[in-house]
């Protein structure tokens, strides 16, 4: 896509462009940023749209609320089944092939790589993993911040994924615009069930002990924001019986 097709024929950002900026699908930089800086009318339009989105909460249609949703929601009931992961040391993962996942500029994206000791494969929501497999983590975030990755099993037991150690706390990281492997991994134990892995990127330090109880309490439901003001991404996996 060229920069030109973000502007209307009079040279101003279109209504769709403004929508995409607010949805974090377009980064407000380059020609767009320059335009908004120099055009009060467009700046007002952007602010008004942002204000409207913030203030006008719509309730979903009943049919949408009742409908099964593909992706993450499909696996939520599996969290009732017990699953456990034991944290095992540090493992340097080989770079995995880039997936074709949808990722947003300015946000946080977590991708997972399962390693059965021989081959590595990318795993996403609902994908099966096996006991004994190691799970590696790749993150992508346009802005720098303090990163913490943690998991929870079907019994509600949480575990730190990255960083690890006796009193885990977030790691300060620079902007990481390309998916990058973290130097940590967990190894699954034999209990079948669901595993949820959550990545958190905050402006300031965050301790594992602060947010782990919130994740533990959310077992079986959509993961709530673990900490106000942080970006968050999560992946659900199914662990098959050995």
């Amino acid at each position: 896509m060229s920069a030109g097709d973000r502007f209307d024929r009079e040279g101003h950002p279109t209504e769709l462009t403004i929508a995409r900026v607010l949805a974090d699908e377009l980064t407000l930089d380059g020609a767009l940023a320059t335009h908004f800086e120099s055009c009060p009318a467009c700046r007002d339009a952007l602010d008004a749209a942002r204000r409207f989105d913030r203030e006008r909460a719509l309730s979903p249609p009943p049919a949408l609320r009742a409908s099964p949703t593909p992706g993450r929601g499909r696996w939520v009931p599996l969290a009732i089944a017990a699953a456990a992961a034991a944290v095992v040391g540090v493992l340097l993962l080989r770079p995995a092939p880039e997936g074709d996942g949808f990722r947003l500029k300015g946000g946080l994206a977590l991708t997972l790589v399962a390693d059965d000791g021989g081959a590595q494969r990318a795993v996403d929501d609902g994908d099966p993993v096996r006991a004994g497999e190691r799970l590696g983590f790749r993150v992508q975030h346009a802005a720098g911040g303090h990163l913490l990755v943690l998991g929870v099993d079907g019994r509600g037991e949480t575990y730190p994924c990255h960083p690890q150690g006796p009193a885990p706390a977030s790691e300060e990281r620079p902007p990481t615009p390309r998916a990058t492997a973290l130097d940590a991994a967990v190894e699954f134990d034999a209990t079948p069930g669901a595993e949820t892995i959550v990545a958190l990127l905050c402006d300031g330090p965050v301790r594992y002990a602060e947010v782990a109880p919130i994740l533990a309490a959310a077992r079986g439901e959509t993961v709530p924001p673990l900490r106000a003001g942080c970006r968050q991404d999560a992946v659900w996996l199914r662990k098959a019986a050995p």
Binding site: P60, L64, T69, G71, L104, C230, R231, D233
Partner: peptide, 24 residues
């Protein structure tokens, strides 16, 4: 910030093609 976190999971690309989480 909340929206960014959710949006990253709006679409899941699987071998059979993109699957959209309409609720998200």
């Amino acid at each position: 910030d909340a929206r960014s976190g959710r949006l990253a999971r709006v679409l899941t690309f699987r071998r059979r093609g993109p699957v959209i989480d309409i609720d998200a």
